[in-house]
Simulated assay, not measured.
Amino acid sequence: MRVSYEAGALDETSLAGTWHEQLQLWLNDAVGAGLPEPNAMILATSDTEGRPSSRTVLTKGLDARGLVFFTNYTSTKSHDLLATRFASATFPWFAMQRQATVRGAVEKVNAAETAEYWNSRPRGSQLGAWASPQSRVINDRHVLESALNMAKRRFAESERIPVPPHWGGWRIRPEMVEFWQGRPDRMHDRLRFRASRDGWQVERLAP
C-alpha cells in the first residue's frame, strides 16, 4: 500500500495569481479528468470543547470571497460553525495526486444566494431537505420515509417549494489555502497562500 507520486509538479512560476483562480484551475482539471464528485471536500469542524468532527460536503460556490456549501442549520456541523465560526476543508483529488486545503472563518450565506441555489436543486432534493432532521437520532428508516411522504403531500399542489427556514449556505472565508502536489520520494510540493496585513503571501512549505 505504497504509491510513488509522479503525476506532476507545482512551482511558484506556474501558480495562478490568486488562491481562488488556482483552486478553480485544479477543480477544472478534476472535472476534466472525470473524477467522481470533483467538488467534494472534507469539512472539518470542532465543538466548543475542541472535539473535532469531519464529513464530506459538496462545494457549490467558489469566488474571491470564499467557498460555499449548503446544509441544514440544525445539523452537527452547523452547531459547530455557529459556536466557533471557523472551519477547514480539504479537496482530496487522489487520482491526480493532489489536494487543496482551505482554512478560515465562516459566515452564513445571505438569503438571496441561498434562494438562487435552492431553486436550482431537483425537486426530490428540496423535499428531502424539508423531511430530514439532519444529525438527529431516529428509530428507523421508516421515520425518514414517513417524513418524506408528508413533505410530498404538503407541497403536492406547489409548483415551487420554498426554502426551509432551517436550511441555507455557509461560506468559508480563507485565511490560508494550501496546494499540495505529490512528488517522488515523499518530497512533495506544498505552496500556500496566506493572508497578511500586506495582502496574500505565497509560501513554500516542507513536505
Rank of each mutant, 00 (worst) to 15 (best):
A83K: 04
H79G: 10
K77L: 04
A95S: 13
N139H: 10
F94L: 13
N149I: 01
M96K: 11
G66N: 07
R153T: 12
T84S: 02
P133R: 11
I138A: 04
R136A: 14
H142R: 12
R197Q: 12
L191Y: 00
W180E: 05
F94G: 04
E159L: 10
K108H: 13
R141G: 05
F179S: 00
E178Y: 04
H142M: 14
T74R: 12
L67W: 03
R173C: 12
E116F: 07
Q97W: 01
T74E: 14
Q126M: 10
F193H: 12
I161A: 07
F94S: 10
S132D: 05
L81M: 14
E175T: 09
R173M: 14
P184Q: 02
P92Q: 06
V106K: 12
E203F: 07
D80N: 10
V106W: 11
R194H: 12
D63K: 00
R141V: 15
K108G: 13
E178T: 02
G182W: 05
V106T: 15
S158W: 04
R153M: 06
R123L: 02
L144Y: 14
Q126S: 01
V177I: 11
S75G: 07
R160S: 12
A112M: 09
I138C: 00
I161L: 09
E116W: 09
I138L: 15
N149L: 11
S120V: 01
E145Q: 14
R173S: 11
D189K: 01
R85D: 06
S158L: 01
V137N: 00
E145V: 07
R153E: 15
E159T: 14
S120W: 01
G169N: 07
Q181A: 06
D198K: 11
F193G: 11
V68M: 06
P92S: 02
S125I: 06
R160V: 05
